[in-house]
């Protein structure tokens, strides 16, 4: 089956990101195709390139990056939700006159239409809320 995940919670603030990452790994382990994880609402904080959790805590951002690298899972971040929360890529930073950017590279900023397409096109869309 083709799966997509919608993640609404920031890492560490809630368990949603941990649950979503565990579920994502299990979906792949059972032989399904995980098309994408869509990060919306506070979920956009999962894409923070500057997040520096202590070494002995789960590295959630790295976990998403591994999924993308090893299983070609798209990491799509809602642009409106991200910009309002300070998650911004180089192009948007230049456009808005900001001197830094904060989106980890394999994550991409995209529109909400992408979430709707995932929901319609995939066999299952599983939401992890916070």
């Amino acid at each position: 089956m083709r799966y997509a995940i919608l993640l609404l919670g920031a890492p560490y603030s809630s368990q949603a990101a941990h649950s979503a990452l565990r579920f994502a790994q299990a979906v792949i382990a059972r032989g399904h195709r995980l098309e994408a994880v869509f990060f919306y609402a506070d979920g956009v904080h999962n894409a923070a390139s500057l997040a520096t959790p202590p070494q002995d805590e789960p590295q959630i951002v790295d976990g998403w990056v591994d999924l993308q690298r090893d299983h070609d899972v798209r990491l799509e971040v809602c642009i409106a939700a991200a910009l309002r929360r300070g998650i911004i890529d180089a192009a948007e930073a230049a456009r808005h006159g900001k001197d830094g950017h904060s989106l980890a590279p394999p994550f991409t900023l995209t529109g909400l239409g992408q979430l709707i397409d995932l929901g319609v096109d995939c066999d299952r869309l599983i939401t992890f809320g916070a």
């Binding site: 949603a16 579920f23 299990a26 869309l125 809320g129």
Partner: peptide, 19 residues
């Protein structure tokens, strides 16, 4: 377990999250 969670989502027609 988490694998059986995935199996439940396979059997379900859709999944609705309450949080």
């Amino acid at each position: 377990d988490i694998q059986e969670f995935v199996a439940l989502t396979e059997q379900a027609t859709k999944v609705v999250s309450w949080y």
